[in-house]
């Protein structure tokens, strides 16, 4: 049962990694933008939640209803005022601007909140567990995290394939010029996509902050976990991304069980192995 527990924990953490990945994958799918500041935005959301919680004594899990709209709004304007100016045939501008943004956010947080690590306390739910079988129990919080990831991915999937907004986003992604011929306003749609991405980032940031300590410098590794989940799962497939997150989480859990120093390394090695032997990912999108 010891190994069963390890793997189960890994699976549940994988839900969090899938949340890191979803926003990244979404904006790449819609506008081919890789946002290097993605991880730092997750950490920023955690600090916004920290402010909310200390100002209002709200439970951090409920702070999501304040943080998500705020981040979404910020995302819309970030896209309209900054990233839309960088989109074009040249890859360099969006990449370097988002890299600059990453450094700005990281050091901005460092300046305001110092390098001390923080944590959000969600109360009794943090220690609550559900007994599955004898000797195997699941924490309620990790379970909630995983269920949220599944719910968010399911909702995005529904939005993409069943709602007019999703149709618009896919059309714009396929051919931005023809999308304009249909009367779509691409700049607005890109803004909406970034808003959705940062709303998911807000959820990820809060779970990150409730689950463990955080400080201004941990953004880049969250970006990397999210990125690895996307590549392991296969580009353009949100359920694949969930699977990628789970595989990464399990690999890290097994690595950590063997030797604490191997936790992160094991995750990276699985990623590199996928890149070496199945570069299209484990569950690539089948193109019509």
């Amino acid at each position: 049962m010891e190994w069963g527990n390890v793997i189960l924990q890994g699976v549940l953490v994988g839900g969090l990694y899938a949340l890191f990945a979803t926003g990244l994958s979404l904006i790449f799918g819609v506008m081919r933008l890789v946002n290097i500041a993605h991880g730092d935005l997750i950490v920023l959301a955690a600090y916004v939640a920290l402010i909310c919680v200390t100002q209002t004594t709200l439970n951090p899990l409920l702070a999501i209803f304040i943080v998500a709209p705020l981040m979404a709004l910020a995302g819309y304007f970030l896209q309209r005022l900054v990233f839309n100016r960088t989109l074009g045939p040249d890859l360099l501008p969006p990449l370097l601007v988002s890299f600059g943004l990453s450094v700005i956010i990281q050091n901005g947080l460092l300046q305001v909140f110092s390098a001390d690590s923080r944590k959000l306390s969600a109360g009794a739910i943090e220690t609550a567990t559900v007994q599955v079988v004898d000797g195997l129990s699941i924490g309620v919080l990790p379970l909630l995290m995983f269920a949220t990831a599944v719910a968010i991915i399911g909702a995005l999937q529904f939005m993409f394939y069943s709602l007019p907004l999703g149709r618009a986003l896919r059309a714009t992604s396929d051919d931005p010029e023809v999308a304009r011929l249909m009367g779509y306003d691409n700049k607005h749609l890109f803004g909406v996509a970034m808003a959705i991405s940062l709303a998911v980032v807000a959820v990820a940031g809060i779970f990150l902050a409730v689950r463990a300590n955080f400080d201004p410098a941990i953004g880049p590794s969250r970006l990397i976990y999210g990125f690895e989940a996307v590549i392991i799962g296969g580009l353009g497939n949100l359920w694949g991304t969930l699977a990628g997150g789970v595989i990464l989480g399990v690999a890290q859990a097994i690595g950590a069980k063997i030797d604490p120093g191997w936790q992160l390394l094991a995750g990276h090695l699985v990623f590199l192995a996928v890149l070496a032997f199945r570069p299209e990912g484990l569950f690539p999108k089948v193109d019509g």
Binding site: R167, R170, A171, D174, D175, A179, M182, G183, G288
Partner: peptide
């Protein structure tokens, strides 16, 4: 639009 079905292409035109 290559990722859209026939009907979705038409719906995009009528949006």
């Amino acid at each position: 639009f290559r990722s859209l079905s026939v009907e979705e292409n038409l719906q995009a035109g009528g949006q």
